[in-house]
Write a protein that binds this DNA or RNA. Structure first.
Lengths: 126, 126
DNA sequence: CTGCAAATGATAGGTTGCTATCAAAACCGT
DNA sequence: ACGGTTTTGATAGCAACCTATCATTTGCAG
């Protein structure tokens, strides 16, 4: 059966505290705060379990390793900062993608990715 | 200087005839119609040149090799068929992504990806 | 507290997509 | 038609990301 380990707790805590989707290497970095010595294999294993148990959801970005975010109810999308590579969730969706769908095609879902520079990086750059 | 070879002509013809973004392996498959015996290395080389000369534009899909489409003037997005993996260009953009952007963030571009099943696959499935 | 199944960390191995290499073939100006 | 330069095809190499393996450690039921 599933055991409650220091490492998995550290990983969940890292994801909750971050408040944004994290990549496996980001998770490792943050989780080490709470559980030093953790290995990357443990992160991949925990993420796999947490996705299967629907506690985490993958956020895919082209050309990037997937980020993972704690499940949330609201429909939302993401912003990718080209400076730091961090991903943020964003509210409001312009909806109505049906009229973009070609005739005869079945639309099942959509993804919107905003690209630019986050507030922190803008400030750092001046 | 740049030479006009049978292979590069076959690759450009394949992309024009397809009328949709193609991945390197799709390009190879289609271009072999016009130039049998072509190798994948030639496709990668030609694609690199055609992107640099702004004849082709990459279309990135999470978890997929990039597709490449002949440059076009209009702003548009793409539809990914989960059945056949083909990518299609789609018209109309719901615009106004600025109000989705968090305060302090600089929005530079956006991507919309529709997912579902294309007309051909729907028909095949019945 | 004890014992054993589960979890961990280190690292080797696998996969995929792309680039480098190099001998052979194809372009193309002359 | 010649000849040098470019291009090609085959394949080895590389890089990034993820999974498998296995000896050691840890959680936890009894």
């Amino acid at each position: 059966m599933l055991r409650r380990t220091q490492q998995r707790e550290a990983i969940k805590k890292a994801l909750i505290e971050a408040g944004r989707p994290l990549s496996p290497s980001e998770i490792l970095f943050e989780a080490k705060e709470h559980s030093p010595g953790m290995g990357i294999a443990t992160v991949y294993r925990a993420v796999k379990q947490l996705v299967e148990s629907e506690w985490l959801v993958p956020v895919e970005i082209p050309g990037e390793p997937p980020r993972y975010e704690v499940v949330r109810q609201d429909h939302h999308h993401h912003f990718y900062c080209r400076e730091c590579g961090r991903v943020y969730a964003v509210e409001h969706c312009p909806g109505d993608f049906r009229r973009m769908t070609p005739k005869g095609f079945a639309l099942e879902s959509h993804e919107v990715l905003l690209r630019g520079v986050c507030a922190e990086c803008r400030q750092a750059a001046g």
